[in-house]
Design a protein around this nucleic acid. Sequence first.
DNA 1: TTGTAGGCGTTATCAG
DNA 2: CTGATAACGCCTACAA
Lengths: 319, 319
Amino acid sequence: MTVSNVINDRPHVRPATRERVLEAMARLDYRVNVAARNLRKGRTGTIGLAVPEVNSAYYGRLAAALVAAAARHGLRVSIEQTGARREDELAALTLSRNRLYDGLILATVGMGPADAGLLRVDHPVVILGERIFGGPVDHVAMPNVEASAAATRHLVERGCRRVAILCGELRDEVDVSGLRHSGYRQALQAAGLAAGPELVQCLPSLTMDAGARRVRAMVADGLDFDGLFCVTDTVATGALRGLADAGVRVPGQVRVIGFDNVDTSAFLVPSLSTVDPDHDLMAERAVALLAARIGRTGPPAEQVEFVSGYSLVIRESTA
Amino acid sequence: MTVSNVINDRPHVRPATRERVLEAMARLDYRVNVAARNLRKGRTGTIGLAVPEVNSAYYGRLAAALVAAAARHGLRVSIEQTGARREDELAALTLSRNRLYDGLILATVGMGPADAGLLRVDHPVVILGERIFGGPVDHVAMPNVEASAAATRHLVERGCRRVAILCGELRDEVDVSGLRHSGYRQALQAAGLAAGPELVQCLPSLTMDAGARRVRAMVADGLDFDGLFCVTDTVATGALRGLADAGVRVPGQVRVIGFDNVDTSAFLVPSLSTVDPDHDLMAERAVALLAARIGRTGPPAEQVEFVSGYSLVIRESTA
DNA sequence: TTGTAGGCGTTATCAG
DNA sequence: CTGATAACGCCTACAA
């Protein structure tokens, strides 16, 4: 159709004809039907993003970066909230397989290493996070262990000798809590410091509220600690509040460091030292990997595993 | 096709036949093609959500609620980040008109009352926010003026006599800053208090950083104020930080109140008093309105204008 | 440079 | 209860 050529800005259309077409389109208030185009092309121009919750400092930040990166690649992003539930994560995979999306960026939180086989799908998927390390798909991760060790080391260098950690339940070694806890443990060991079990405080959920409650309890119980590594800034925010409630001075009596470098962290009182994992780079890489697979024809490319860098951001809470 | 009947769980299929179909589907690893279904049905099952930025405490919270509400209505949500730019907001409208989405929830921030005519489109749109009050579409808003007046009144009742406001540029009367500023002004007037121009502090952007800087400058300039109404919690968070930097005690010397009841507000030190506009209700209504229009055949329904309720959350910053 | 034919995968309609 | 047929709107290939 000549009309199609006009719509898609293709050459070989005489200016006069193009005008005539444009005029008719205007007159009829014509709109392309994207659904029909999608069917014909076998592409939708949309990728799925499955995260536990967009209303979280961390995933919100990441989602914003991913949407922006996708826009740069000419892709739209449809968001699926999985609530960190395994079945909802699998549901997102299914939708994607049904060609609703050209590809999927999946934050695996509920799924575990045992589910790696389910990822062996015939269409583009990029995993965000580390729970399914070494699975048969592209993978974008953070240097959790190294960065956590660096954060812990920082506390030690500032003179802390009794460093506690606030993490989630330690179910296995491959989730955020597991990895960051192991970095913490390595750093203490390397420094020749004890990491007694009383210093490892596992929360039922990684929320501000849980962090605040637990810290108050720790102080009330007379637990002896002078450093606190929180596995996320969200938990750290709660912890700072809890310490204030308990009348503990930060950094005077206890130094605190978080992980994620969430926007508010710089504005807390005291401002929160933290690990910055370069969200924008992670987002760009994730989208770039996906876009490459989407565009690809012929034999599938090798799986890529990208680990972002990190930097320590030192603020008042460890001054 | 009998196959179609099986896939869609329709009656009038003999069990034996159903089994045969299911078996074949499993054997062939068959997947429905959503693009084809969309074309045929004239629906995509997806609605668009156009907001300035998902990585903002307020829009992130709202987006999460909207995605959840949409899921309850059997709809997916595709996110468009407009950066509060008028042209990007219009672009979202166009995509929606192209039947990429069944409907659109649009936070008009860049568009103004002059653009109301552009909203006269023939397909479902719900406007979020108030910049295009009274336009030809459904509309979900907050009681900005009343709630701001209540917040200001609260400061006055706690004894503040010199109440300042931190808002954005006052370009017109219909954006967030304009409306909340006018509530502030009404409350002061009703209380018989002066609202000198020096108390109205307009920021270049509603960010934590801008809030912190401005507050430091206000104190450094020796501005006399004992109450501070911030038009968003984000700005208030920065303001609390700025006051701490300047050595001003909250609520001792200055009482502070925000607007939005963002998650972190309860955990700041001091915790932030604020206005809670019931995001979940707004989200539910917005999606319900859109879903009703999508499902509707026949003559278009009347435009609905829903204004959420609000509640004052009193915390330490105004104790 | 323009136009014609056909098919992408699904489902509504209606006949068997 | 099952199946044949046509059409949703677009684009690629090819023909004129």
